[in-house]
Each structure stands twice: as C-alpha cells, then as structure tokens.
Write a protein that binds this DNA or RNA. Sequence first.
DNA 1: ACCTGAACACCGTTCAAGT
DNA 2: ACCTGAACACCGTTCAAGT
Lengths: 225, 225
Amino acid sequence: MTATREPRRGRPPKGAPQLTRQAIVTATLKVIDIDGIDAVSMRSVARILGVDPKSLYNHVAGKDGLLDAVAEEILGSMHLPEPTGDLRDDLLAIGHAFRESALAHPQAAPLVLTRQLASLEGLAPVEAVLTVLRAAGCPPRDAVPILRTLVATLIGTLLREVHAGPTYGITDVAGIAQRRTTLEQSGLPRVAEAAADLARFDSDAEYQFTLNLAVDAVTARLSAT
Amino acid sequence: MTATREPRRGRPPKGAPQLTRQAIVTATLKVIDIDGIDAVSMRSVARILGVDPKSLYNHVAGKDGLLDAVAEEILGSMHLPEPTGDLRDDLLAIGHAFRESALAHPQAAPLVLTRQLASLEGLAPVEAVLTVLRAAGCPPRDAVPILRTLVATLIGTLLREVHAGPTYGITDVAGIAQRRTTLEQSGLPRVAEAAADLARFDSDAEYQFTLNLAVDAVTARLSAT
DNA sequence: ACCTGAACACCGTTCAAGT
DNA sequence: ACCTGAACACCGTTCAAGT
C-alpha cells in the first residue's frame, strides 16, 4: 500500500537530504544549461529540487543573490595557471583560463561577465593578473588600469561570443550567406564591401586575435616606461 | 456636468493623439531614466502613456522588441564625427562619440552594450570604423577583426563604468575608504598591495586610458604590415 | 533552524470582439 | 487599422505558523 506522497511540513525528517546552498546553485545551473537564463525563476529552480520556492530564501538572498551565487560558482571554478615568469605567456594563459571557465556554461556566461561581484571569488583572477604584472616590475599604480583594460577587453569579446551563439559561427553556411546578402544590401559602402568577412565569425580565432592584441599593447606600454 | 472619464473603446476619436512607436520608445526611456531598467514592463510603459498594455503590441514586437527599439534609438542618436584622415584621431573620435551616446541614458546603457542588434542602426558605427581603417589602407579582411576588438574593448569598458555606477567613483570618499579596507583584508597579497588603487575609479581617465591603449595597439598592428 | 500555507502585488501574451 | 475585455499561466517576496 503506497501512501500518496504528501507534501512535507516543517523541518524535513532527518533521513531526507537537507536543502543546501550548493544544491540550489547546481540546480540553477541545470536550468540555465537546459533552458537558458530567462528560464531561471525561484519556482523553476525549486521545482527540480522538489521543494517549495520560498524555501530557497533560507539559503540565498532572493533571485538576485541566487544569480550572484551562480556567477561566483563559475568564477570560483576557474583554473588559474602557475606563473612562469614570462609576462606574455602568463597573461595569455590567464586569458585562456578565463574564457574556458566562462564557456563551461555558455548560457550562464552573461552572468559571470556582467554581474558586479563583491565576493572574494571575483578577486582571484585580479590577484593573478596583478601578480604577473608586478613580477614584470610594474608598480600597483600602473598595474590597476592595465588590469582593468585587459579584463574589459576579454569581457567584451566573450560577451560578443556568447551572444552571437553557435548560429553566428562558421558552420551554418546558409545563415552566413543570408547575413552576407543583408549586409551587402545595407546601403553602407564599407559594410557592403566587407560583408563576406562580417557575416562569418570564428570565435576561437577572434579570441586569440584580440587577446594577442591586448597583450601586445600591454607589453609595449610597459617596456616604454 | 463633467462625465466620469470612461475608458475608450475601439479606435480613438480622431482628435486624440495616436499611439505611436516613437512615443512608446520615449516613454520607455523615461521609465528607465527614472526607475531603472528593471522597472520597465509593458504595464509600466503603458501606464505613463494612459493606454492599455496590450496596445503596445500593435507597434512593438513584445517586451524584447521594445527593448531592442530603445537600444536602437540610443545608438541611432549617436553623432558620428567627420573623418579627418588621421587614423588615430578618427578612431579616438569615434570612441568618444560612442561613449557619449551610451552615457546619454546611463541606466539604459546595458541595453545598447549588450543587445545583439540586427537593425541598420547598429551598423552606422561599424561603417564609420571601417571607413577609417580602409582609408588607412587596411583591407576588409584585416579590418573586421580589428573592428571587433575595438568595439569589444569599448563595450567592456563602458559596461564596467555603468555597472560601477556613481558610487564607485572618486567623490564618495567614505565608500572608497571602506572598499579599500575590505580589499586590504582580502588575504590576497597583490590585491591588498594595490587596494588604494583598486578602491577608486575615475571613469573619464580610465576610458581615455583604455581607448588610447586600444588605438595604439591597432595602429601598431597596421604599420607592422 | 528550516520549511510551508496563505496571501499580495505584480508579470507577458493571446485572441476574439469591438469601432 | 487599432484598441480593449476577458483570460491564462506565470512571477518574486513577506510573514506568520508549523515542527
């Protein structure tokens, strides 16, 4: 005789798995990976945990706090490389590590790239870049704006990449062709002229290009002092 | 005998001002400027127009289309400078024009910086940058990735600026002091060391710095060919 | 300490019916 | 062609009451 499962009341029986902040974050990531960021709601997350939406408020500061927690989780799982002592190599390595962590959950990337994180998780990459710049003999006062420029460039590039999505890649030939003719008929001469190049987008290559350009700029600036 | 104002029904009397796409966009901007972007809803916008929320659907493709329209409006009002023929000067001028238009409605800036715009409005700045690069002898194939890097850098920087908000500036001494001690106690040595510089943020100066660095990188890359 | 019922004040959107 | 009533399926969040 299987009793029809009644909704629990009060604290759960000791055998039951406690609702935990980590479980909530994981569930949220699941929602994001499957249905995208707009599908995140206190209700949708609670649903896949088999819990009342209001229970989440015991572990997370509202929906905003939940999204912050997700961003921190992703940033916290970033694998920072050991510095080798070579400025260029080290900056490039950090740049690639940043991209890798952001793209681990592409649909969640805007969160990581966009949220102003007050927590310590957000500071680990900052520490990494500062360490490399300081090792190259750059004083903190000069290092900070360089750090900010570098981060801004990577964020801007990654934001473009994740917003463009897979559609905008190099595989969807039909889509590329269609975008190309749109651009050719835009009435803007330079845009039309470059339509073939504007219509396609190789994210790996473009990231590489931008990162290299940024690192070049930084090393040039530093050696100029 | 003043009749109690009954809600209109059907098409409005010919004297009444027609609901128009432009009016809707303007009203939305008003909501954003006053209460921020999260305050935008079909209902809030309709309310200040004295209209039923559903009427908006006759002029705008849902809430998403509404936000796109706002972004296009802002981008469309960007004042692009006449090219002088000097690569550096022209790129700097476009960069400053971009910032100016984005900051005309600071609360709406994330829209402009973040939305993937399919419309022609979004192409005007692209045309401007391409024109300058082509004038400097750069072939389209090389110009496009440079353009993308440039735009990504500006977007990343402006995003940081608007997210930081006025609080994070250089005027709020108390806030700066508090952030500084937080950073000093972060346990991260390089962060602690640079705490004084990390705690403050002069947006004008930083934008100038980043823009210069980016333009330097581009000109260096071009003359290397 | 943690969970939920009841409740509140919101959302975006469709569709048919009006003029 | 444009507007709205009725309606639907959602939201986030508070607070008191349970265990």
